[in-house]
Amino acid sequence: MTFFKADKLAIHFGGVKAVDGVDFEIAEGEIFTIIGPNGAGKTTIFNLISRIYEPTEGQLIFNDEDITNTAPHLIAGRGIARTFQNIELFEQATVLQNLLIGRHAHRSGNLLANIFFLPSTRRAELAHREEVEKVIEFLDLARYRDQRIANLPYGVRKVVELGRALCTEPKLLLLDEPSSGLNVEETSDMAFWIKDIRDLLGITVLMVEHDMSLVNRVSDRVLALNYGRVLTLGSPSEVQSNEEVIRAYLGG
């Protein structure tokens, strides 16, 4: 059984080959990291997986199913959740509402039930709330519960975004630079959470990250990209000592 597989994945913007024939496979329960210099195509791969972009070529397999042509809003329901590099939270809503939106893929009931707020909707809402509270406890967000995102510091927003992704109950979690903009302490919290997400919740993690200390601490395998192509794939130490990777980062 294939958990996740990108097969000859490619996307071209005009003449620019942002991702050019990338193959990789992620095993269930892994923490898999993509590294590479700016513009290597890391975030583009995320956008391809979450179906914001249409791949020019190639295939995406998740849980033995081809998701290359799945509509973007159905991806969350399949069990893939993501965070964004520059935080895309719902600014004017509270933390609780943001997390509840994360439950959207699991909603039931129709529009009329919602409009009249029938008992079935009430029951479903309470059940969602239970799930959300588990995430709030897991990420220690209780004191921010009723605050608007617009009033929160950057570090907390980053955690809320992680929480929102967890609320979708994903099987595969895509984290786009989870440590960017965080201080040392927050980064080390993030490292613990990423490990806990895998160890306690059993969620497979695919992340893009620049902070090599974080990468070394949590990753099982690392994929190095440059100019949309795979440089190498291996354990964090192997990849870091790879000559091509060093050249890509140092130039030359």
């Binding site: 979450s50 914001i52 959740a81 964004f84 895309e88 509402q97 959207h104 919602n114 979708t168």
Partner: peptide
């Protein structure tokens, strides 16, 4: 209810609303 939350989500960020399903 979920419907109204989806409205608010669309107002604040279409792209992440979509990725939330």
């Amino acid at each position: 209810s979920p419907t109204g939350r989806a409205f608010v989500a669309i107002r604040d960020s279409e792209i992440s609303a979509q990725s939330m399903g």
